[in-house]
């Protein structure tokens, strides 16, 4: 099964439970942060200005949720529980609401990932063109081993992704924001060298 699918299923409830325990410490709003560093707000300075600009582009604050989450992920690499709390606060929503939305969209990371996040398309059109071999090469060469796992050096996380919409350029991969077309197992190591 794909890594994205694997995040749910039997683990879903357990994961949610674990999060609840975690939030006892380092909460978003003035938590004492004795065990973890105090939460640093994402929306200040330039990002706050960016958010305020977004407010002028939509008739509701709620509509700024997806863009706001992108800003969080851009700043932090993933979307933590305290960050969800902050987003909820700046948009007048509840954390539960925001979390329901975050978990709907597979591009938002609810866990930390490697420095470089690699998404490889293995949906049918690419699949018949050898995408699974590309995926295996990526797992091998990055040292990630498994889909969704982060390499021991913290450099990479590789996941399978459903259709990147570049089926004529099989196999496409997305490394962070770089869209790379026509990847073959042979090209993998050369590509990875560009990402330290």
């Amino acid at each position: 099964m794909s890594a994205t699918a694997g995040q749910g299923g039997s683990g879903a409830g357990a994961a949610a439970g674990a999060h609840r325990g975690m939030s006892e410490h380092g909460s978003a709003h003035g938590g004492k942060g004795t065990e973890t560093a105090p939460y640093e707000r994402v929306f200040k300075g330039e990002r706050l200005a960016r958010l305020e600009w977004l407010f002028t582009k939509y008739p509701t604050k709620q509509a700024c949720l997806l863009p706001a989450l992108w800003l969080v992920q851009e700043a932090r690499g993933w979307i933590s529980e305290p960050a969800i709390g902050e987003v909820a606060e700046v948009l007048d929503l509840t954390p539960a609401y925001v979390k329901g939305v975050v978990t709907f969209y597979t591009m938002y990371h609810t866990h930390p990932v490697g420095r470089h996040f690699i998404q490889v398309c293995t949906t049918s059109p690419c699949n018949i063109c050898g995408a699974e071999d590309v995926m295996k090469a990526l797992l091998r060469e990055t040292g990630c081993g498994d889909l969704g796992a982060t390499s021991p050096d913290g450099r990479f996380t590789v996941i399978e992704v459903e259709c990147l919409g570049a089926c004529g350029f099989a196999t496409p991969i997305l490394v962070d924001d770089d869209f790379i077309e026509g990847v073959t197992p042979e090209k993998v190591s050369g590509i990875l060298q560009r990402y330290q």
Binding site: A5, Q7, G8, G9, A12, G13, A16, H19, R20, M22, S23, S27, A28, E81, I84, G85, T94, P95, A96, Y97, K99, G100, V101, T103, F104
Partner: peptide, 16 residues
């Protein structure tokens, strides 16, 4: 909330 998608979906609650 409803969390996640497809048959992995479940009723979720905020940790806060």
């Amino acid at each position: 909330n409803v969390s996640d998608r497809g048959d992995r979906a479940y009723i979720g609650i905020s940790s806060e």
